[in-house]
């Protein structure tokens, strides 16, 4: 019995390797070519260089787009965390008619195609007199990502020990003070985790951004624009950096998530 379960069939091993290669080989190639002196042409890559990274440091248009992306992502994190926290509190604590509908409506943007969200946000931004531009983008990302924030924070609220809030009220703290001193600190990890996830999602979002962007490009938009003029290893270099930052953020997010799960036990 154990002999058969312990011996993995060879074809399964090969199959798994192929799947992983299919997913990660292109990314690996992208990273490798960011260090290749001869650019994206020429296989196999021959000469190792940091030139493309050096070039990045002087490319002001690219860094402007990075700053724009950071601005949008930070705004999106703020908007979606604030509104998501309120929505999660309502879902967790309040009892009101239409609560089931409310829950679905809040979570709907998670599965809506970006193109629909983008188009409707564009029409709204124009109608509201906001026009296209970075502000529109960050409101766009913020609202589209509320569902992510709500899900994460709601999970945190479900794990929160309500007796602690009662203890705080019992000791004479007002409900408002209890929220700041007990509820929020207990949600800290959920909030950070949600913030990181939203930040990464906003950083590489392209569909919604495409509809709402004005003259200032975000980083994905800038890269997309340059690709149409031909691929340069500089793009590989910036992509490698983005990849690195994303991996770091996702790792932190994952760690925090497992820590909140452990601490609730």
């Amino acid at each position: 019995m154990s002999a058969t379960t312990n011996r993995r069939p060879l074809f399964l091993t090969i199959y798994s390797c192929l799947v992983f290669a299919f997913i990660y080989l292109p990314i690996l190639v992208l990273v490798i070519y960011s260090f290749n002196r001869d650019g994206v042409g020429g296989f196999p890559p021959r000469h190792f260089t940091f030139d493309w990274y050096r070039q990045l440091t002087t490319d002001s248009a690219l860094w402007n787009s990075v700053l724009n992306s950071l601005y949008v992502a930070a705004g999106a994190v703020f908007v979606s965390l604030t509104l998501g926290l309120l929505a999660a509190l309502a879902l967790d604590r309040a009892d009101f008619p239409g609560k089931a509908l409310f829950r679905r409506l809040v979570l709907l943007p998670l599965i809506l195609p970006g193109i629909i969200t983008g188009l409707s946000l564009l029409m709204f931004a124009v109608a509201a007199g906001l026009g296209r531009g970075l502000t529109a983008v960050f409101f766009g990302h913020g609202t589209a990502l509320i569902s992510v924030a709500t899900t994460e924070i709601f999970a945190g609220l479900q794990k929160l020990d309500r007796r602690q809030e009662e203890a705080s009220l019992d000791l004479g703290a007002t409900p408002w003070r209890t929220f700041w001193l007990v509820t929020l600190p207990n949600l800290r990890l959920s909030l950070i985790a949600a913030g990181l996830l939203i930040f990464t999602l906003s950083m590489d979002e392209i569909a919604v951004t495409f509809f709402l962007i004005g003259s200032d490009n975000t980083l994905p938009q800038e890269i997309w624009g340059r690709l149409r003029r031909g691929i340069t290893p500089e793009i590989n270099a910036i992509s490698t950096l983005i990849l690195l930052v994303s991996i770091i953020l996702i790792t932190i997010w994952y760690r925090l998530r497992t820590r909140t799960q452990k601490s609730s036990l």
Partner: peptide
């Protein structure tokens, strides 16, 4: 009125003296 809860409901993010000081601060 103050309560001693069944599972104590101490604040895990505060240390012992901060827990005890909570009501006085409030």
């Amino acid at each position: 009125v103050n309560t001693v809860f069944q599972q104590y409901a101490l604040f895990p993010h505060l240390n012992v003296s901060e827990n005890v000081a909570y009501g006085l601060r409030a």
